[in-house]
Design a protein around this nucleic acid. Structure first.
Lengths: 236, 236
DNA sequence: CTGGCTGGTTGGTATAGACCAGAAGTTTGC
DNA sequence: GCAAACTTCTGGTCTATACCAACCAGCCAG
């Protein structure tokens, strides 16, 4: 049974990570150090690291090194619990950075909500962290009529909470799409990871109980940072 | 703006694929041929191909070559429409191969359904195809009481259809989990892809309307072959 | 016509070494 | 005391080459 050497390496790294997880404080030694320790080249070592990255055990911060990935965040995209709430409920620390606030049109949003192509939206782009690790960037396009002065008051809080409490919109119908992706250079840069890193793209179109369009959003998650969980009762 | 060469290569390959898609019948030229055409080495070329693989544009069949990926199958894991039905509804051709039929215990199934650890199940393992491409392998563990003679009569049809029509079980409560993964050597082999290929793991625990456990299943999809779509109405 | 053999083709794996640019830590200079 | 400049470390990218094993098509024998 002569498995490929890089697969044996993968196993050795796996146990090494188990043993030294706390000692290293999450950061693996430099690639050159590991390559020497296992008497191989960086190329082969990186192949083994890439395997563990695919499994979600480790990840890399662009040009900074390899890190042990924390447990995945459990996330239910069908609920409208705020990010801050469910992150805290899992004993983690949430944080949000607002990257952009503007009014503009956006074709995919218009299409998904059944509005004219040149429909303007309030656009919010934000980056969200769990325990100080940036795990997703997202863009939200809100129909301006639903939240006229949104851009003036928005400061990182839960958008759905605002829509409900300030403008009385109840999100009733949602159409959700999820696909695996390679992060675009822009998303990758905003998440401090290498371009092409594996990600998960979640898009949602939200209407109210009268089928009126409210909001469309695109989330780009690091693939190893979440576990999607949906609980349903009743026949479908 | 001197991007990395492999990223330029990615773009060139992308347009080359667009142009020659039909001519090549889905299969790309050999890596050595492409490397020579772009005056680079196989290593760099493979990096570009891996990027496109991550995007879901191409995939490789183990030791057979690179192929252009067909459109993703749209899939709603919250519905119990049969695989055959929704594949055909999208104008594609479904196929199922039964890999294993046995009775055995399975710890994750027992835990997910709230049954004793040594609970026996009827276990079905099957591989499913879309247009003759193997896109997923799945294992199902059915509580024997719910479908006593299942293993004698099962031949690849819709399991949920059988449960409903033959044994009168209506699937009411489902708990679904989805995580990205690297396919295990076994799953990879059964799907004819290289070990460590990116995949998507979907697990479901199903109870009936009385909260009685019926079935647990684990699906392993090729990451580029599906687009998860969920439509919900009503406040959550 | 069929089944096994065979050799070329191809992807999978691995070595060895090199250079660059970003990140981070250290020193210098005001 | 602080900011700018420099140095070192590190991951990201790339070249050139090699060998192996699976695959596959074509040949050959029964």
């Amino acid at each position: 049974m002569s498995d490929a050497y890089y697969l044996q390496l993968t196993e050795q790294l796996r146990s090494l990570i188990d043993i030294n997880a706390t000692q290293w404080e999450g950061k693996l030694p430099a690639e050159r150090v590991l390559a020497e320790r296992f008497a191989t080249t960086r190329v082969t070592l990186r192949q083994a690291l890439a395997q563990l990255e695919g499994e979600g055990l480790i990840h890399r911060s662009n040009r900074r090194g390899w890190f042990i990935s924390p447990a995945r965040l459990v996330y239910d995209p069908t609920r409208d619990a705020g990010f801050n709430d469910y992150v805290r409920a899992q004993g983690r620390r949430p944080r949000t950075a607002v990257l952009k606030l503007e009014t503009c049109s956006h074709l995919p949003a218009a299409r998904a909500l059944g509005l004219p192509d040149d429909q303007p939206f309030h656009h919010i782009r934000r980056r969200r962290y769990v325990d100080d690790r940036a795990v997703l960037v997202e863009s939200l396009w809100v129909v301006p009529n639903c939240a006229p002065e949104l851009l003036d008051i928005y400061a990182g809080q839960s958008l759905w909470g605002l829509l409900r409490e300030r403008w009385g919109h109840y999100l009733a119908n949602r159409s959700i799409r999820m696909v695996s992706e390679a992060l675009s250079p822009r998303d990758a840069e905003e998440l401090l990871v290498a371009p092409g890193t594996a990600g998960l793209n979640i898009n949602r179109a939200i209407l109210d109980d009268q089928q009126r369009p409210i909001e469309y959003d695109e989330e780009h998650w690091l693939h190893d940072s979440l576990c999607i969980s949906v609980e349903l009762s009743g026949q479908q």
